Amino acid sequence: MASHDLELGVRTRDLVRSFGNRTVLDDISLTIPPGQFVALLGRSGSGKSTLLRALAGLDRDVEGSGTLRVPAKTSVVFQDSRLLPWQRVLSNVLYGQPRSRRQEGRDLLAEVGLTGRDRAWPSELSGGEQQRVALARALVGEPDLLLADEPFGALDALTRIKMHELLRELIARHTPTVLLVTHDVDEAITLAQRVLVLDAGRLTVDLPIDLPAHRDPGEPEFQRYRRTLLTALGVVPAGV
C-alpha cells in the first residue's frame, strides 16, 4: 500500500507484483524528483500499467519489503476519458471536488480550450475534447503527482500533436510531477525530461532527455535518443 511522502516526488524500492506464477513487477526501485516529467516505455505486457496502478493506489496487492511513497494529492488520466455520461462537462470536471471549486473548474475548461462547454454532455464532444475534459478533471484539485496511462493512445495523429502541446502547457503552468505511460517512443521524447524502459518487469533503461522544451523530431539529437530507445525495446537491432 502506498504511503504519502512530504517531498511530493515518487519513491519505490523493491516492489514486486505477481499474478499467479507470473511476476509482472520484479524488484522495482525508482525515484522521481518533485516536478520531473518521466515517460515509461515498454512492450505490451511489460508491466507499465501495473506499475502506474500501484503508484495510484489502485492495486493493493503489490508486495516486497521496500517502500512505495507518493504524494497524497495524486490524480490519474486513462486512455479512455472515463467521463460520466449522465453528468454535464463541468460536473465531470468537478467530480469528487467541492462545489466551491466551480470557478476553478471553469478556469480549467478555458485552459484546455473548452470555454463555454461546461453545460455540454460528454456525448456531444469529440474524442480529443473528451480527453481535454479528463485533463481538466485531473488538474482541478492541483495534484502533486499526475499519472497518465496512454492518455492519447486512442486519438488520431493530428489530434495527438495538439494534445502534446496542450499537455506541455498545462504541466508548465501547474507543475505536478508526471509519470506518462506510453507505447510511443516519439511521444516520450517529445514530452519527457527522462525516459524509462520497463522490460519483463524490470527497469532496464533510465535515459535523461536533454532537449529544449519545443522539440523537432527531425533534429539529429532527437533521432539519437529515438534510436537508443528503439534498440532497448528490440525494434532496432543493436549496432544498426
Rank of each mutant, 00 (worst) to 15 (best):
V89S: 01
R215H: 15
R132H: 00
Q97P: 08
L139P: 01
H183Q: 15
D107Q: 13
H183I: 08
V112G: 11
E169A: 15
E129R: 00
V133L: 09
E104M: 06
L180G: 00
A136I: 00
Q103G: 11
T228Y: 01
Q87F: 07
Q130A: 09
R227H: 08
E124V: 01
R88E: 11
G127R: 03
V93A: 07
G113N: 07
G113S: 01
R226T: 02
L196R: 02
D186N: 12
L229E: 05
L229K: 05
P122E: 10
L155D: 14
Y225Q: 01
T182Q: 02
L108T: 00
E169H: 15
D186Y: 03
Y225A: 03
Q223E: 13
L180T: 01
G218M: 15
E219Q: 10
S91M: 08
T231Y: 06
L230W: 05
T182E: 00
G105F: 05
R215T: 12
T231R: 02
R117Y: 14
R117K: 03
L211Y: 04
D107Y: 08
L139S: 06
F152K: 10
E111Y: 02
L170H: 11
I189T: 05
G96Q: 03
E187W: 06
R224M: 08
T190W: 11
Q193G: 15
T231V: 11
H214T: 11
L94N: 12
L114Y: 11
L135T: 08
L135I: 06
I171M: 01
A192C: 12
D186P: 11
V178K: 00
E150I: 12
G201W: 04
R202N: 04
L90N: 05
L196G: 09
W86G: 01
P217G: 14
A148V: 08
G127C: 02
V89D: 00
R194N: 11
T175A: 14
L125V: 09
L158D: 09
F152W: 09
R224F: 05
E142H: 07
E169N: 13
V185R: 03
R88N: 15
L196E: 08
G153F: 09
L155M: 08
M163A: 13
V178N: 10
P208I: 06
A172H: 11
P85I: 12
P176K: 01
L229A: 05
L147R: 07
R173T: 10
R202W: 09
L114A: 08
G105H: 09
V197F: 10
G127H: 05
L146K: 07
T115N: 05
E219R: 04
D149I: 06
L191I: 06
R202M: 11
E221W: 01
G201C: 02
P143N: 13
V140D: 02
D186I: 10
R106A: 03
L145N: 02
E219P: 00
G218T: 09
Y95G: 00
F222I: 07
D144N: 10
R224G: 04
R88D: 15
E165L: 13
L196A: 03
A138F: 09
A134G: 07
H174Y: 01
P208T: 06
V133Y: 01
A110R: 13
T190S: 14
